[in-house]
C-alpha cells in the first residue's frame, strides 16, 4: 500500500468539497472511506492509489434503517449486518435480507456498508492483479475474454468481461429501490438500477455515480403484497462471490403473475435486469411452465466465453428455483 493522506470531515459539504476535483483543498485523487472492505483491498493490490482517504463516517450521514410506513429508508452507511437482522427487512423485503445474509462473512458484514457494497469494484482476478494490465485499469484489452474466464460475464460483456460482484444490488433493483445522491450541485434521486452501467468507451467503471457524489440513502417502496427472494450459488458453502445469483420478486393476483422482477447477479458487468423473463411472467399463470419459460428468457442474449458456459444452466436453475419458492 502506498502512502496517503487522511481526512475526517464533520460535514457532508466538507466531504464533497474534498472529493470534488478542482475545488478548494481537493487534489483530484481523494476517495471516500466507509467500511473500507473493498477500497483497502484495492489499495493493497496497488489497483487504487488515492492520495487521500476521506473518512465519511463522522459527518452525520444517514446510517441505520428508518421505517417510513409503508416503505423503508436505509442509510448509505448502514452495515450489511444491520440490514440482514432488521425485522422489517426480513418481513417485507426478504430478497434484501437474504442477499445481505449470504454476502461475504459475518466479520465483513459487520463493517461493510450498503453504499460501499453497491459501489464496489469487480473482483475479476485480472483486474485485481497488479501484475496484469487490463482494459478496466486503462489497458488496451480484456485478458479474461480469451483467458481464464470461468468466473466472468455471460451477459453484456465487452469491452470488460468482469461481473458485478454485489449480492445486494440485484435485490435492491428487484425491489424497485431508489437511491438518494448528493454531489457538489445538490441532491438527486435515481432508481438503484440507474446507478449502474457497463463500462464502455472512456468510462472505465461500472457506475454512473460521480466520484464527488455520496450515496446518502436507499428508499424501498411499499412491498405491496410482493414476495421476494435471493438465491446464490458459490464455489463453496459460504464466503465467496456469486457464480450466479438471482433476485426475484413476484406479485400474484390469484394464480396470475401481476408483476415480476428478475435480476441476475454474478453474470454481467452490472446487476442484470432480465426484462424478457419479466415479460414472459407478467400475466402468465403461476406454475412450472411459466417458470421454465422465464428461466430460459432470462438468459436471452447470453454469450458465454470459453470456460463459463456452466453459468447458463446454473442461472436458469436459480431463476426456476426462486420462482417456485415464491409461488408456494
Amino acid at each position: 500500500m502506498r502512502p496517503f493522506a487522511y481526512a475526517s470531515p464533520r460535514t457532508a459539504d466538507e466531504i464533497i468539497a474534498l472529493l470534488t476535483p478542482g475545488s478548494a483543498g481537493a487534489d483530484g485523487a481523494s476517495r471516500p472511506l466507509a467500511g473500507g472492505t473493498d477500497l483497502l483491498t484495492l489499495m493493497k493490490a496497488d489497483v487504487a492509489t488515492p492520495s487521500r482517504l476521506v473518512d465519511i463516517k463522522r459527518a452525520g450521514l444517514p446510517k441505520g434503517i428508518e421505517e417510513t410506513p409503508p416503505g423503508l429508508v436505509v442509510g448509505g452507511l448502514t452495515t450489511l449486518a444491520q440490514i440482514e437482522t432488521h425485522p422489517a427487512v426480513r418481513a417485507r423485503y426478504p430478497a434484501l435480507a437474504e442477499a445481505t445474509a449470504v454476502a461475504a462473512t459475518a466479520q465483513l458484514r459487520n463493517v461493510a456498508t450498503v453504499a460501499g457494497n453497491l459501489l464496489q469494484r469487480p473482483r475479476c482476478w485480472y483486474f485485481r492483479n497488479p501484475r496484469i494490465a487490463c482494459w478496466l485499469k486503462g489497458g488496451d484489452h480484456c485478458p479474461a475474454r480469451d483467458g481464464e474466464n470461468q468466473l466472468h460475464a455471460i451477459l453484456g460483456g465487452g469491452p470488460c468481461h468482469a461481473v458485478h460482484p454485489s449480492d445486494v444490488a440485484p435485490a435492491l433493483v428487484a425491489l424497485d429501490a431508489d437511491a438518494r445522491l448528493r454531489g457538489p450541485g445538490g441532491e438527486r434521486t435515481v432508481p438503484v438500477e440507474g446507478l449502474f452501467a457497463a463500462p464502455e468507451g472512456g468510462r472505465r467503471r461500472e457506475t454512473l455515480v460521480g466520484s464527488d457524489e455520496l450515496l446518502l440513502a436507499l428508499r424501498l417502496p411499499p412491498a405491496d403484497g410482493s414476495r421476494s427472494t435471493y438465491l446464490k450459488s458459490m464455489d463453496r458453502k459460504v464466503w465467496a462471490f456469486a457464480l450466479a445469483g438471482v433476485a426475484a420478486r413476484l406479485r400474484l393476483d390469484g394464480r396470475r403473475v401481476a408483476e415480476a422482477r428478475i435480476v441476475l447477479g454474478g453474470v454481467a458487468p452490472v446487476p442484470w435486469r432480465a426484462h424478457e423473463a419479466e415479460r414472459a411472467l407478467e400475466g402468465a399463470e403461476a406454475g412450472p411452465a411459466a417458470w421454465d419459460r422465464a428461466a430460459n428468457a432470462a438468459l436471452t442474449g447470453a454469450a458465454p466465453l470459453r470456460h463459463n458456459a456452466y453459468k447458463l444452466p446454473l442461472a436458469r436453475a436459480l431463476v426456476r428455483r426462486a420462482l417456485e419458492s415464491l409461488a408456494t
Binding site: 473482483r123 482476478w125 485480472y126 492483479n129 501484475r131 496484469i132 485478458p143 483467458g147 481464464e148 464455489d235 463453496r236 458453502k237 459460504v238 464466503w239 465467496a240
Partner: peptide, 26 residues
Amino acid sequence: MEERVVDAGGVVLNANLEEYKVPTAP
C-alpha cells in the same frame, strides 16, 4: 474446490485466500 489457476501468461490468478478456495466450516 482447491485449484491454482495460472493464466496463459504465467501469472497465478488466485494466489490469495479469496480466489483460492479452501473449505470453510460449513
